[in-house]
Structure formats: C-alpha cells, structure tokens
Design a protein around this nucleic acid. Sequence first.
DNA 1: TCGCTCTTTGCAAGCGTGTGCAAATGCTGC
DNA 2: GCAGCATTTGCACACGCTTGCAAAGAGCGA
Lengths: 335, 335
Amino acid sequence: MSQKLFVSADEVAKRAGVSRSAVSRAFTPGASVSELTRRKVIEAAEELGYHVNQLARGLMRNESGIVCLIVSDVATPYRSALLRELTQQLQTAGKVAMLVNTDRSDGSVDRALQQAIRYRADASIILSGLPDKSITQLCLRSGQRLVLINRDDDQPGPLRINLDDTEAAHRVVTAFLRAGCQRLAFANSDAGTPSLMARERGFVAAAKTQGLDVTVERYGFTSYDSGKMLAQRMLTRTERPDAVFCATDLLACGFMDAARHQFSISIPEQLSIVGFDDIEQASWTSYQLTTFAQPVAVIAGEAVQWLSAEPSSENERTSKLLHPELVWRGSVRAG
Amino acid sequence: MSQKLFVSADEVAKRAGVSRSAVSRAFTPGASVSELTRRKVIEAAEELGYHVNQLARGLMRNESGIVCLIVSDVATPYRSALLRELTQQLQTAGKVAMLVNTDRSDGSVDRALQQAIRYRADASIILSGLPDKSITQLCLRSGQRLVLINRDDDQPGPLRINLDDTEAAHRVVTAFLRAGCQRLAFANSDAGTPSLMARERGFVAAAKTQGLDVTVERYGFTSYDSGKMLAQRMLTRTERPDAVFCATDLLACGFMDAARHQFSISIPEQLSIVGFDDIEQASWTSYQLTTFAQPVAVIAGEAVQWLSAEPSSENERTSKLLHPELVWRGSVRAG
DNA sequence: TCGCTCTTTGCAAGCGTGTGCAAATGCTGC
DNA sequence: GCAGCATTTGCACACGCTTGCAAAGAGCGA
C-alpha cells in the first residue's frame, strides 16, 4: 500500500542510544525509567515523529482504548447531542470513540457489536436498537463492557441507563390539568421504541387516575414530518384535543408547525404542547417548546465513568435511573 | 482486567482440526483454502464465537481499516448530516469510523491527527480546523491518506473537497436583484472559516459588479443565537437591508426568527433571505428557507472512494470542486 | 574496600495474526 | 502404476509493542 510507513520504537531506540524497552517504558506512565533516558527518548521520538502503535499496544495489553458507539439516526438533534457529549467525555477519559451506524434492518446492531469485538473494543455503548442476547453474552464473556442507554432490557451484566419516563408523563398530566386542559392526546411514532412506549403508557395511566381518557395516535418514525402528519390526523377530528404530549421534540415541532400554519391554531391559547428531549430547536423563538431535558451530560458521564472504572467486584448497581428536568417555555397555557 | 478474554484462532484451529494458518486463510478473501476446510473453520468459529482480531490483523497487514473523522461541533445539523453520510459510506466500503472531537483550542486538530497516527488509521478526514503543516507531512510520510473537506488549503498530498462558494454567492446576488432588492447585506460569523469568508468575498464582489454595496456584519460562531444577534444589529440601523445572505442556515434561522418576532418584519415581502447548507430545519414550515444544498452524499462518496482506491500513481486530481444546488423555497420575494 | 538495598536497564518471550516457502495432497492422462 | 501439474496445507517468521526477570549500576554505611 504505502512505502516508508510509520516509524517504530526500534528507530527511536537506536537514535536515543537506548534499548527498545526503554522507549516503551518512556511512553508508559508509571514505568521504571530514569528521567534522563525518558528525556532522551522523548526527544528522539519527536525528531522522528514517533507515535506509539496502539494496535500493537492493545494487542499486548489486551486493552485497545477503543469504545464503540452504536447508534442509528446520527443526524438527529438528540442523538447528535448525546454523541457529542459521549465522544468528548471519552476523549478526556483517554479513550477513543469508534462510531458504528445502524439502520432498522434485522441484525444491524448485532453486526455492529461484532465489529466492536473484531476491534477488541474495551466497551460498547448502545444508543439504538437492541442486540441479540447471544451476542451480548459473547461480549460479556469476552470481557467487553456494555452500556445500554434508554434501552429497556433486563438482562444483567450491561450498565443500563434509563430515564424515568413514567414520572415525566405524570408531570405532564398535572401540568395540562393545571392549565385547564381537558381533551388530552398523545402523539407517538409507531417505532415502538421502549422509552417512547413507556412515555405513552405513563401518560395514559396518569390521565386515567384523573378520570381522563387520552387520544393516542402513532405514525412513522420519530421525525418532524411524522409530527406534521400526526397533527393532520388529530386536528381534523371533530373533537380536537386541547393538550398534546409529543413523545419527542421533533414530533412536537412538526405538530406545532402543522397546527399553526395549516390549522391556524394558536399555541398555547387553543392548544398546549409538551415535548421530550429538549433539542436545540425547542428553544428557538418559533417554537418555545415546553419539554423535558434529557441530561445528556450526566448520561455520558455515568457511562464513561462506569466503563473506565475498575470492575470492582460488584461495581455497585448496574442500572441507573435518571430524572429528566421539565423546562418551561411558552407552549403550555398558563394555569 | 477481564478473565477469559477473546477466543483466538488457535482454539478455532484445534476445534476444526486444522492448522492455525487455515483459520487465518478461511477469513481472508481470496486466500488459498479448500471449500471443505473453510466450512469446517467457519462452523467452529461460529460455535466458539470467534472473530478475527483486527488489531493483530492490522499490525500484520499494516492496514487497520480505521478512518479517523476529525470534527468539531458534532451536534450541529450540517456536521451531523455529513457525519451520518460519511460513517455510512465508510461502513459499506468495509472501513470503520473513529470519531475525534476537536474544540477551538490551539493544536486541537493536531492532537486529533496524532490520535489517528497512534491507531494507524488508513486515512483521516478533516471537517473542521486545519492541522499544522508538520503534522500533515508526518501523516503523508507515514502513508496515511488525508481528506480536507471545505478547508481552504493548497498543500499537495491530501484530497481537497471544496464547494464553489463564489459561484453560489454570485447566484444569490442575481436572485436578489431579480426580486427587486436593493439594500444587500451579508450576515457572517466571525469565526473566519475559509468557506465562510469565501462566501462573503464572493457576495461582496458580485454585488460590486452590479454597482451595489453590501453591508457586512460578523458575530460569534455560526449558530442560531448568532443569527439572532446579527439581526438585532442589522435591523436596528436606519437603513434596513431588504435582502440578507446568511453564511449558514443556522444563522439564517436565527435571523428570520428575530426579524419576524422581534421586528415584525414579514418574509419575504419586506426582507429576502438566503442561507447555506440546507439543513433539515431549513425545510420546516416555520422557515421555508431558500438555501444552497451541500451535496453531503456526494462529498462523502468522493472522500470514501478516493481513500479506498489504490494509490494509482497519480490518483488523478487531488482536488474536487463541487457545486451546491440552490433550493428554492419561500424566503426570497418572487421577481 | 565490601556488602547491602534500591533503582534502572536490557534480554527475550509473548500478544494474535498474515504469508512466503516447501512439503503434501489431489487430479489427470498415459 | 507413475510422471506432471495445480491446489491445499503446515511450519515458522514477522509485525510492533509490553513486561517479567535477572543483571547491572548507584548510593551508602561500615
């Protein structure tokens, strides 16, 4: 492929007039080297442009430093925000992120995890989909850490980070009631993702305890266009809802736009809307969407901390439940 | 760290009753193995959950299969769209993406490239910032391919993919003139990114040939908030512009929102706006922004194709100039 | 000077794989 | 049966690094 290739530790050793082990030790924090040789090595390395070969190091140490991020729909606001947080925190923890894109096809996540295994990733973080049990078993057996974010799974081993969707749903119901709304609706995608379904169930259940029925509509993936479509379905009914909880901010944005510009409904006067995720667009002047903020920084922090910690016998809980924060903006009628 | 660790080719060989070389060859396309042994090996591998160790393979083949994506502001719509395209196309080309986040600090890109070198990445694709010449030299000398996207650099070696910003700027001027606009303005961030500056210069120059002056304002990074700020600065002037070319869709969205909701200006009747990038939000009903679409799929395609091709002596041109497509929506007054 | 301890250094084995080379095997035609 | 050839197989070395181990050196008190 290429000619000269990378400079190796041998060349550095020769130039610095030391043994190859010395070079290795000079680049290993905490290794036994005198300050003098270390300096000689570093200098020679810089002159030659030497950088430790992490492939070889990983092979020996049996620890690649690679963490595999498995995710679909990377270009989506919420996903990309989480991605930013994860990559940044991984970097400061001395790890490096390997990004594997999945689609909705069968076995997509499994293939991604196999990629992670091939590269001997120290850990994999799964943001989308759910891998086959046999593969996760293989990962764990191989000594690979696993983190599931917002995936509803109960097998032990992986760290599971989840949001309290039910609590959130309850809070939306109270907010809507306090605003004097009566005809509640839930706008969902029909992707059937665990967290989306949890929000829906929680919302319906909470409304029921208040003696209210909820109109539920599901359509497409969780996107802006689906939001518009959902609005068209719900707002052409004879009994229009006056309060809609959208499973996702993206859905909410589409819903709002359709409601305003197609149905000339004014928000929040005639229609209260709450979303979920607190994507950047939710704060834009055109939307001012009241929504739940996913604590992406905390999520990433928990994940990174867990997977760079020593596997202390019981590593405490392998499951974390975080609480989204309700961000009040202008899309819910004042009480 | 972990106990049992990954299963190696030796174990597979033993189980399949063949030599270790046979295992290796069974997983090497085009290697000399009989169909029988290959099948035996594959079967044994599946039973044991064996996956080739890419670290070791990369070490031998001197080709890791890793491509390093160097980028800042991952969570930004345009960046994440490009990222999605790149990771997907890399995957189908049999490569794997390593994501390195940069910030605006000095040497951030250089550190990222060093990371790429450490992992012996086959190539690096730089979407943000510009590395020091010495580092790029080191990369090239080490046999690493380099792709610069929308970075204005003239040193030979890397593949440079650029957009024709000047042509785009010219087209905006004609569009504005045809719409009967007279007071032209350019809203830019003051990040000084090469492509942003090229758009500004092109716009000013094109206007000049028509005998028109352009009000130029620069502020902050290229974000929604900067767009709002720019609107506040430009629309409080005594002579308001009636046509603004925003260097970025994100700026344009902020600009539009401020114009409409703070200054009650109606678009496009009193103010025509054109953006750049064609991020997803540009097509949202609230914006309907006329803008230039970056051909992200083509960009990614060119990059991936180039870096997975054999280094055919002269690999043709090392510089590609692509032409953004003008997407007409509703933010420019009809002529 | 010696003997002791503590630090630093080099040697060499090994990590899991690819691959050149020679030996072995299978096949064909006589 | 055998020569002749193409295909398949195994051995052993290489890739660039880490690290246990033993040898070498440094420091120091007697």
